Amino acid sequence: MKRAFALAVVPALAIALTACGDDKDSGGASPGHSMPGHSMPASPGGSQAGPHNAQDVTFAQMMIPHHEQAIEMSDLAASRASSPEVEKLATQIKSAQGPEIRKMTAWLTSWGASPEAGGMNHGAMHGMMTEKDMKDLKAAKGEPFDTSFLDMMIKHHQGAVAMARTEQSSGRSPEAKQMAAGIVSSQTAEIEKMQTLLKQL
């Protein structure tokens, strides 16, 4: 009787041990082990990697410093603008362009490109202000600031719209082209608003 019980238990034990081994080998993850194909976390912006070309890279590399200067100009309005409308517009510009900078930086990372526009002269970019322009803007206050800010930001926006239109026609990345379309739409509307504000000063 004891021998019969032993003969029945051994095969059952062997089957149980084999099943445990099969679970691990077939992809079942044991504690402390990652599943095949999931050992590395997704890199930042990895979900945005996709079809792109040199124009997409150039667009992001040029638009990042362009947006950064627009934010720098907008930051000045809080302590220098006399028009509530100018201050409100500056806040609007800053809140829109900050997230776009982060998104474009993520694209460049996912594309294996540097966020820095290597070898490019930022001063020669569309609508960028010179060091003297920025110095003069920082020195202005009240209505003179409002006038200078609007004049400069109109030119700055016109430059951004020109770069965005180039991306629309020559880019390949769907995400970058979608952003370019948004820039054309939003900044064209802001240009019209700033032109109106200028007439009211």
Results as ranks from 00 to 15, higher is better:
residue 76 L to Q: 03
residue 187 Q to R: 14
residue 193 K to N: 15
residue 119 G to H: 08
residue 91 T to I: 06
residue 181 A to L: 07
residue 145 F to Q: 00
residue 20 C to A: 13
residue 100 E to Q: 12
residue 113 A to D: 03
residue 199 K to G: 12
residue 137 L to F: 02
residue 90 A to C: 02
residue 58 T to R: 14
residue 131 E to F: 10
residue 118 G to E: 01
residue 128 M to F: 03
residue 99 P to M: 05
residue 197 L to W: 08
residue 84 P to M: 05
residue 189 A to P: 13
residue 62 M to G: 05
residue 99 P to V: 10
residue 117 A to T: 03
residue 155 K to L: 05
residue 68 E to V: 05
residue 73 M to C: 05
residue 45 G to F: 00
residue 183 I to W: 00
residue 33 H to Y: 09
residue 127 G to S: 11
residue 14 A to S: 15
residue 81 A to G: 03
residue 107 W to C: 03
residue 8 A to G: 15
residue 98 G to R: 14
residue 110 S to A: 09
residue 84 P to N: 11
residue 69 Q to K: 12
residue 36 P to S: 10
residue 173 S to C: 08
residue 167 E to N: 13
residue 169 S to L: 06
residue 106 A to R: 03
residue 99 P to L: 06
residue 114 S to M: 02
residue 172 R to P: 06
residue 63 M to L: 09
residue 56 D to N: 14
residue 70 A to W: 04
residue 189 A to C: 12
residue 157 H to T: 08
residue 10 V to H: 04
residue 167 E to A: 04
residue 99 P to W: 13
residue 105 T to M: 11
residue 78 A to W: 02
residue 164 A to V: 10
residue 140 A to H: 01
residue 134 M to V: 05
residue 145 F to H: 00
residue 42 A to D: 04
residue 25 D to Y: 04
residue 17 L to K: 08
residue 76 L to S: 01
residue 66 H to A: 06
residue 12 A to M: 09
residue 163 M to E: 03
residue 155 K to E: 11
residue 18 T to A: 15
residue 104 M to H: 10
residue 118 G to S: 07
residue 48 Q to K: 11
residue 72 E to A: 09
residue 133 D to N: 12
residue 142 G to D: 01
residue 108 L to I: 08
residue 168 Q to G: 15
residue 157 H to E: 04
residue 138 K to N: 02
residue 55 Q to F: 10
residue 198 L to E: 07
residue 17 L to T: 11
residue 178 Q to P: 10
residue 86 V to G: 00
residue 77 A to C: 07
residue 109 T to P: 11
residue 163 M to G: 06
residue 43 S to M: 14
residue 112 G to L: 00
residue 141 K to I: 00
residue 100 E to R: 09
residue 33 H to L: 09
residue 33 H to P: 07
residue 135 K to F: 05
residue 201 L to T: 14
residue 200 Q to A: 15
residue 188 T to S: 15
residue 97 Q to R: 09
residue 134 M to I: 02
residue 13 L to V: 14
residue 15 I to C: 10
residue 153 M to D: 02
